[in-house]
Write a protein that binds this DNA or RNA. Structure first.
Length: 648
RNA sequence: GCCAAUGUAGCUCAGUUGGUAGAGCAGCGCAUUCGUAAUGCGCAGGUCCAGGGUUCGAGUCCCUGCAUUGGCUCCA
């Protein structure tokens, strides 16, 4: 007999060799039905694996990450099994569970079409109905390789060859299908239901562009049909907020073939929002002691040679002239602002009393991104960023870093994005000497300093290796778009290297010349990207202070045209952004259009209003608000704008 | 850059085996003067992404390029 202890502290005696499923059954049949996998002494295992000794046991259901993972991982095997049945020549690569689903990579001449996915889904359902028992077995390395060679699975052979010499290699089998896999899995294909294949896409073998491109099929699976339906519906709903669609419909931006990829045209309404954001950022930065610079959009390559960008990122720059001709005068559009602002620092000699020196600039940058990288307003070849560089003494780094973070968080809060972001502490990769400059000791100490600051502030962050800038570690504030794809919105970086390269110094109190530490940071990030995220956040219904049109004034009939015009004029004099609808149309039609344009307020001027000296107010969110004197409406809207209210 | 899909009126889309382009909305005109999400009638609107090719004939088939979208890779 063995003793199994459960998470609630209770324990029970079982026969040796009992499975987690048996143990679950001993508690309740319902629990057995829900158990997908388990944790034995904290290690994820198959629920159908025999347990040999005393242990602690946690049963994993679909509610647990581990349970979902096993469920979807088994779904991915069922996908591979179905593909193998329909396309026997397909070679298997990898097929993990991921957040919200799973995928499997295949190498086959056949290109999967949406119709193919439907057929594969049918086959998966068949596999589900076949209720194939899932079993696990292990082979020594040499035998495992021979076995996969025999099955004609070269990718699996490669995977095994990378495992340690002494590893026991595990396989999972369901019916005729066998896959190299660490598990765990659900015990029977009949238990994995509600599988939906989402899309097919290309993906490089082992994630390297040097390798062959395989075909990846993405799918998801839920225990309950209703949850799958809700998930699909949520995706459809999210797509309606897609900035790329909404931003064009609302006439915020457009793209034009002959201008080129990654070069959107911001239409009046989009440009207005960016102007408002920019004013807000620049004013706030002024309050926080930043000094404004305005530096050139291009420079001779010599500048980028000093910064190191010429060596590191020449392919990513727009270069004017023959880059290979060392004699020629070659210019490049700026891909970042750092060296330009450094020149402002170098304008005269600096004292320790001058520090910290904070330069900010609303800076347009140019990066020659690869053709497949561009995406809506998220990833562009030309974009404008709220960029700043702070030169500080070592004893000021902590305070200045905190100041940068405080500014970023203030911006996020005002825009209502604060709860949508995550923090990533991006560190270097000491093995990547091609990308990173500087010595290990300095990297380590700078990273430790950043970590201490973050911990001190209680920032909840995840660490990412090999994501730092080439000159220093970053705090990246990440956000997801409607497709779930994560991008950096804001970044704060500590740079202990470029000051030396540029000969930026200050005379310290002791008379010694020293190099300042430079903080690179954005406060709101790239304006185009921020606009994209705001479109998706608010589904185009921007807070009133940001709305490109704040009030639409509508005349009820021709009798009230003049009255409506005079109301509009008064609102404009007051500084509001106003549009008029003086057309000879029914009021319901005008309201419908204004609602679709997501204009915060509609003022309706009919005979009654003219007579009563009031305006009829309609809110896009709250509907008809009745009539009020114009002055009262102005007070209401003004208050909303001044407080930058988010819930209008 | 790689793997795919898509590209037809301002927008959303239809267009059969290759036979000479259509709808709704928007626009314009006329009528209607209306009370909180679509008034009616009429008119106009197209280098079918671009360039080649096949064919008696190409929106449709083939090739190349460009752009848009979803992934992969990359992102100072």
């Amino acid at each position: 007999m063995i003793t199994i202890t459960f998470p609630d502290g209770s324990s029970r005696e079982f026969e040796q060799g009992v499975t987690a499923l048996d143990a679950a059954a001993a508690i309740s049949p319902r629990l057995k039905k829900a158990t997908l996998a388990c944790e034995v002494d904290g290690e994820r295992r198959d629920a159908f694996a025999p347990i040999g000794a005393d242990c602690s046991l946690k049963l994993l259901t679909f509610e647990d990450e581990g349970g979902r993972w096993a469920y979807r991982h088994t779904a991915s095997h069922m996908l591979a099994q179905a593909v193998k049945r329909l396309y026997p020549d397909a070679k298997l690569a990898i097929g993990p569970a991921i957040e919200n689903g799973f995928y499997y990579d295949f190498d086959t001449e056949h290109t999967f079409s949406p119709e193919d996915l439907a057929a594969i889904e049918k086959e998966i359902e068949k596999i589900e109905r076949e209720e194939l028992a899932v079993s696990r077995f292990e082979l020594p390395r040499a035998e495992a390789i021979a076995y996969m060679e025999e099955l004609g699975e070269p990718y699996k052979v490669e995977l095994i060859e990378d495992l340690p010499e002494d590893a026991a290699i595990s396989f999972y089998k369901q019916g005729e299908f066998v896959d190299l896999c660490a598990g765990p899995h659900v015990d029977n294909t009949g238990r994995v239901k509600n599988i939906r294949l989402m899309s097919a896409a290309g993906a490089y073998w082992r994630g390297s562009e040097k390798n062959k491109m395989l075909q990846r099929i993405y799918g998801t699976a839920f225990e309950k049909r209703a949850d799958l339906d809700a998930y699909i519906a949520a995706i459809e709903e999210a797509k309606k907020r897609d900035h790329n669609k909404l931003g064009r419909e609302l006439e915020l931006f457009t793209t034009v073939d002959v201008i080129g990829q990654g070069l959107p045209v911001l239409l009046p309404k989009g440009a207005r929002i960016i102007q408002l954001l920019q004013r807000f950022v620049e004013d706030e930065e002024q309050k926080r002691g930043y000094l404004l610079t305005k530096t050139p959009f291009m420079a001779k390559r010599d500048l980028y040679k000093i910064s190191g960008h010429w060596d590191h990122y020449r392919d990513g720059m727009f270069i004017m002239g023959d880059a290979d001709d060392e004699e020629a005068e070659v210019f490049a559009l700026r891909p970042m602002t750092c060296p330009f602002q450094f020149m402002a620092y170098l304008n005269r000699s600096r004292s320790y009393r001058d520090l910290p020196l904070r330069y900010n600039e609303t800076s347009t940058l140019f990066r020659n991104e690869s053709s497949g990288e561009m995406h809506g307003l998220i990833r562009l070849r030309q974009f404008t960023i709220s960029e700043a560089h702070l030169a500080c003494r070592p004893d000021q780094v902590e305070q200045e870093f905190k100041g940068c973070l405080d500014l970023a968080q203030y911006m996020l809060k005002v825009l209502g994005l604060d709860s949508d972001v995550t923090y990533q502490f991006s560190k270097w990769d000491e093995n990547n000497t091609e990308k990173y400059i500087g010595d290990k000791a300095t990297w380590e100490s700078t990273q430790n300093q950043m970590r201490n600051i973050l911990d001190d502030l209680g920032v909840n962050y995840k660490e990412a290796d090999g994501e730092a800038a080439f000159y220093g570690p970053k705090l990246d504030i990440q956000i997801r778009n409607v497709h779930g794809k994560e991008d950096t919105l804001i970044t704060i970086q500590i740079d202990f290297q470029l000051a030396e390269r540029f000969g930026m110094m200050y005379t310290d109190a002791d008379g010694e010349k020293k190099y300042p530490v430079v903080l690179h940071r954005t406060s709101i990030g790239c304006y185009e990207r921020t606009l994209a995220l705001l479109i998706e956040k608010y589904a185009g219904a921007f807070p009133t202070w940001l709305a490109p049109v704040q009030v639409k004034v509508m005349a009820m009939t021709e009798r009230t045209l003049e009255a409506a015009e005079s109301v509009a004029k008064e609102l404009e004099n007051y500084g509001l952004r106003v549009e008029r609808d003086l057309r000879n149309e029914k009021i319901g039609f005008k309201i419908r259009e204004a609602q679709l344009q997501k204009i915060p307020y509609m003022l309706i001027i009919g005979d009654k209003e003219v007579e009563g000296g009031v305006v009829a107010v309609r809110s896009r969110k709250k509907g008809d608000l009745g009539t009020m004197p114009l002055a009262e409406f102005l007070r209401m809207v003004n208050d909303e704008i001044l407080t930058k209210a988010l819930d209008s």
